[in-house]
Amino acid sequence: MKYWIIIDNVQRGPLELEELASQPGISFSTPVWHEGLSDWSTAGALPEVAAVISGQPRQQFGGQPYGQAYTQQPYGQQAYGQSQYGQQQYNQSYGQQQYSGWQPPGDGQPKMPNNYLALAIIATICCCIPTGIVAIIYAAKVSPAYMRGDYAAAVEASSKAQLWVIVSFVAGLIWAPFSAIFSLFSM
């Protein structure tokens, strides 16, 4: 998959995922787009990109260098270069509802990944206990990892919680018709 990014008002791309890490000036708040996304997102909001970036020790989120650059050039006002994907589209999406919780610079932290707690509880109660409990345990790990700034670990816990939720539901769905047949016969 090819990625496009915007750094210092200049759009770069198409880039491979691996190439993103070596882009000078990339951070979690860098706008990123790839095919299939309806709008520009940020590097921090896309786990695979966040993981690649955080693999580099110098790219901690909330880093000062980016913070200053952004305060001088607020989002939504500037034109972003010769973008064939439409500056309007990008400008519109920022500063409106979709990114309303998003704080520019300084604390340009990515959002906390979903912990799938609701689905994990449903899985535990309704489907398949052991795997549901594993999902809840991973759900519990998301927040602390995120709070200590370890975004990659938070993403990992999130995707493991998701995986075990899926495993639970699939097991439950496979089991349900069998058990209904069984109970009809055993009546």
């Binding site: 919780g101 906390m112 707690l117 809840i136 759900a139 998301v142 927040s143 602390p144």
Partner: peptide, 30 residues
């Protein structure tokens, strides 16, 4: 579900509900 839908508007609710201690209490309750 509500806090997931409106996580931008109620970030504190989301933080409380994703708190590790809170989740472990749920697990212990179960």
């Amino acid at each position: 579900g509500f806090s997931w839908l409106f996580r931008d508007r109620f970030p504190r609710l989301g933080r409380v509900l994703s708190n590790q201690f809170f989740i472990l209490v749920i697990l212990a309750t179960i």
